[in-house]
């Protein structure tokens, strides 16, 4: 690819949920990310283009968008991996309300994160002695599997169950719940099982696995949800036993 010789046809969502795609001609560069392309449009073609990003290095989870219909973290995805016949389509995240252009309203995503019991409740205070946690223990291994979640909402946008069931808590919130359930230093572990057993809870998951396929950090929310189903089922019999 010679610098600036090639142009990409980039169609970008404009407006709110009633908007439409608008196409821009963007020069192609080496090592160009999707976020670079969106930023080029905003800086050189249309300064009114609204989008969201912060760290640009895959840490903050701000810049996720739909790219050719698939959710991706745009700062860590090279445009050359997604371009088809010199064209690419970029839209706001699926399953969330659109604020404007490429900025989706993340409120439902974070509200569900809290509803699933995702807020940490410390089991001790700074005055208590530090309890050792074996990093290789079975519970901590389960908890550690999910702690690299950056809350980018890629899994939430990928989830077909969320698409069909607006009440469903979604993969990220349930994975967070599973992480805290296995955290020895979380003080509200039993209430998590109640929080994920309601009408929008983990039992609505069809195990289609889009969350695990699309997670940019290669986490496995589907297995975390399976863990919640297992524990709630065991608890169901314990309560009656």
């Amino acid at each position: 690819m010679s610098a600036q010789a090639e142009k990409l046809d980039v169609s970008v969502w404009r407006g709110d949920s009633d908007g439409a795609y608008q196409t821009f001609q963007v020069p192609a560069y080496e090592s160009q990310t999707i976020l670079d392309v969106v930023s080029w449009i905003q800086q050189y073609a249309d300064p009114t283009l609204t989008y969201r990003f912060a760290c640009r290095v895959g840490m903050c989870g701000s810049c996720a968008m739909m790219v050719n219909g698939r959710p991706r973290w745009t700062c860590r995805t090279h445009i050359k991996t997604v371009v088809k016949d010199g064209a690419v389509q970029i839209g706001p995240l699926r399953n969330l309300p659109v604020i404007k252009d490429l900025a989706a309203d993340m409120d439902p995503f974070f509200d569900k994160w809290v509803a699933a019991g995702g807020v940490h409740a410390p089991s001790g205070s700074r005055y208590d002695p530090i309890e050792p946690v074996d990093p290789a223990g079975p519970e901590r291994t389960e908890a550690s599997a999910g702690i690299e979640c950056i809350n980018c909402s890629v899994c939430y946008a990928a989830c077909d169950t969320v698409a069909g069931n607006a009440d469903y808590l979604g993969p990220a919130a349930l994975q967070r719940a599973w992480t805290l359930y296995n955290d020895a230093k979380h003080d509200a572990r039993e209430s998590i099982l109640d929080a994920v057993s309601g009408t929008g809870g983990c039992h609505n998951c069809h195990s289609m696995g889009s969350c695990t396929v699309y997670c940019p950090n290669e986490l496995d929310p589907m297995s975390a949800i399976a863990g919640l189903k297992r524990e709630t089922a065991k608890n169901f019999f314990r309560k009656r036993g």
Binding site: N165, T199, H203, K229, T232
Partner: peptide, 12 residues
């Protein structure tokens, strides 16, 4: 929509 009770009824 599908709570624990219905889930268990379906699995059992």
């Amino acid at each position: 929509m599908l709570d624990l009770r219905l889930y268990m009824a379906q699995r059992i």
